[in-house]
Design a protein around this nucleic acid. Structure first.
Length: 574
RNA sequence: GAUCUAGUAGCUCAGCUGGUAGAGCACAUCCCUUUUAAGGAUGGGGUCCUGGGUUCGAAUCCCAGCUGGAUCACCA
């Protein structure tokens, strides 16, 4: 980084940094700064009649300054919010030397700097609770200007809204749009509420491998990595289901994991390549029990966040009050299409799809056809939380067959706002059946389905030792957070959503310049003037270039020794 | 992957049918002891995303690319 690449404002700030050091002020001090109260606590608890908070010490980022002669106001922002501070020259500079106020505060400090102040709380004539400062300390100098956002009575002026910048520089977004912190605080509350519930019921939080030799537990394309020492591929997990079930085999009767999973697929408003899922497995339970459990969990989450089961999402109100509606997939299709597909064979189902104008692929089997009908005609209608149960067996290779109908499985999905939120099974624990289902997946894979499951022989071996009847459930934490915080984009519930890398313009190497006899210190100047490639330089006029260089040097006070006209001619003409 | 749309000062944006790049905030200098998005005066600040093309002349029109966003497709 050098001066010619910086904006004017950045140069001013770097100069301020040097000035501070010359005055003996360390702009980045090492020692701790003791804070004894938060801004929010002062604003909530200060009462003039109690005369409380008369010795406070707070720290935060300067977000606003109004300087007037020998007294000034500023606002500093800590994690809890902003408070106004009042600084009077003769208070922070009681002696003859007024440098701290006149120079440090008025000239060298900027919006964005982090400072600590001590003083007493009072109310201004305008009625605003403020801190009357008697000591001020620089804690960290900011040398890059923040976007300036102003706000009055809830109306925002010049909001920082560009999504690209907000996601790429989330730290800036969090500073200038503090309200977005709320989404992430709620996200943590969701996770904490679930964890407390599971722990109170005696289930064990566990960790299972993220790097897996066989990516199992779901149908999705994985990210592939490589282990050098073992010289073998390893996959980032697409799910953790098979490992959690191994722990049930091992004798734990309730295990859960909040797990980052990874899927190498498209990205859009509801998909990020890495995402968070909670999966839980409980022994000696079935999917009916798990529906009750899921209802309880979701209702608790809604109450923890909103103190009510009614949650606003867009223009809808979604009510998470128990019990949720339950409907079989076949009944759902009957409800929304009027067609009873019960007992139909593959050809009959194809006819149904045609009559409903659903696009088909020849490779689709019976289960896939039913799933298409449901996805097209039913799924979007389930706005209020609804358990859709009893899915076709072909769709669910890890799920136990239905106790009364072998073509179905004991599976449910929880639909909210027309989208899947949870997925749960009575888990398949028949090792021979499981092996057969894996083999069916292998057949699919050989037909070219690159998402079909791998056979996990070790998992089958585990089942052969015997797994108790078990029910398991998975829930997408990102999507749950979206619904609970009224966000339509997954990028708004992830601090750092995946983005394409920023691309920097390609510059010619420094040696290309020095080869022409150009001094190193002039290279950035030339680049700033647009000569990022030697070719461009050779096409320019020596006279103009000479003028531009000397002018740039003077204007930016770089203090470089100007080249001679002959030098410049040589560069251009070589 | 397809279609649409956007990229101009640190930030938010204007810039019409091509003709010397603008505003507000921020920044700098000076004045001001209680201001409430915005005190007054003055001033500086630009690779108009990149590269081609059309033209006497391109921020503006055309083509390609890069990076976003929206919709759709694919995908649990």
């Amino acid at each position: 980084m050098n001066l010619s690449e910086l904006s004017e404002q950045e140069i001013f700030r770097r100069n301020s940094l040097d000035e501070m050091r010359k005055l003996g002020i360390n702009p980045y001090p090492a020692e701790a700064y003791e804070v004894n109260v938060s801004n929010k606590e002062i604003l909530d608890q200060y009462k003039p009649e109690l005369n409380n908070y008369q010795e406070v010490s707070v720290a935060g980022r300067v977000m606003n300054r109004r300087i007037m002669g020998s007294a000034s106001f500023a606002e500093i922002q800590d994690q809890t919010g902003r408070i106004q501070i009042y600084i009077k020259r003769d208070d922070i500079c009681p002696g003859e030397d007024k440098t701290l106020y006149n120079t440090v505060f008025k000239k060298l400090l900027d919006i964005g700097d982090i400072i600590g102040v001590t003083g007493y709380v009072f109310t201004t004539q305008m009625g605003e609770i403020s801190i009357h400062v008697h000591e001020l300390k620089v804690l960290s100098k900011s040398i890059r200007p923040l976007p300036i956002v102003k706000e009055k009575d809830g109306q925002i002026f010049d909001a920082f809204t560009d999504p690209e910048q907000r996601y790429r520089q989330r730290y800036v977004d969090l500073i200038v749009n503090p309200s977005i912190k709320d989404v992430f605080i709620k996200r943590a509350m969701i996770i904490n509420t679930m964890r407390e519930m599971f722990n109170s019921k005696g289930y064990l939080e566990v960790e299972t491998p993220i790097l897996q030799p066989i990516p199992g537990g779901a149908t999705a394309r994985p990210f592939i990595s490589h282990h050098n020492a073992l010289d073998m591929p390893l996959y980032l997990r697409i799910a953790n289901e098979l490992y959690l079930k191994r722990l049930i085999v091992g004798g734990f009767e309730g295990v859960y994991e909040f797990s980052k999973d990874f899927r190498n697929e498209g990205m859009d408003r509801t998909h990020n390549p890495e995402f968070t899922v909670m999966e839980i497995y409980v022994a000696y339970k079935d999917y009916n029990w798990m529906m009750d459990f899921t209802e309880e969990m979701i209702e608790r989450v809604a109450l923890a966040l909103h103190n009510t089961t009614q949650v606003i999402f867009g223009d809808k109100v979604i009510d998470f009050k128990r019990p949720f509606r339950r409907i079989t997939m076949i009944d759902a299709i009957k409800e929304y299409t009027g067609i009873d597909i019960n007992g139909m064979d593959e050809n009959q189902l194809r006819e149904v799809c045609k009559s409903l104008e659903i696009e088909l692929m020849p490779s689709m089997g019976k289960g896939k056809l039913i799933d298409e009908i449901f996805g097209e005609k039913c799924e979007p209608h389930f706005i209020q939380p609804t358990f859709v149960i009893d899915y076709p067996v072909e769709m669910s290779p890890l799920c136990k067959k239905h106790r009364t109908n072998p073509e179905l499985t004991e599976r449910f999905e929880l639909m909210v706002n027309g989208k899947e939120l949870c997925n749960a099974y009575t888990e398949l624990n028949d090792p021979i059946d499981q092996y057969e289902r894996f083999k069916d997946q292998l057949a699919l894979s050989e037909k070219g389905d690159d998402e079909a499951m791998f056979i996990d022989y070790d998992f089958v071996r585990a089942l052969e030792y015997g797994m108790p009847p078990t029910s398991g459930m998975g829930i997408g934490i990102d999507r749950l957070t979206m619904i609970m915080t009224n966000q339509v984009s997954i990028q708004d519930v992830l601090f750092f959503p995946q983005m394409r890398p920023e691309k920097k313009a390609k510059l010619d190497d420094a040696s290309a310049y020095t080869d022409l006899g150009i001094a190193v210190e002039w290279i950035p100047v030339l680049q700033k003037l647009g000569f990022t490639k030697i070719e461009n330089l050779k096409q320019s006029s020596a006279g103009k270039l000479f003028n531009d260089l000397c002018g740039f040097n003077k204007k930016n006070k770089l203090g470089l020794a100007n080249p001679t006209m002959d030098d410049v001619k040589k560069w251009v003409e070589q």
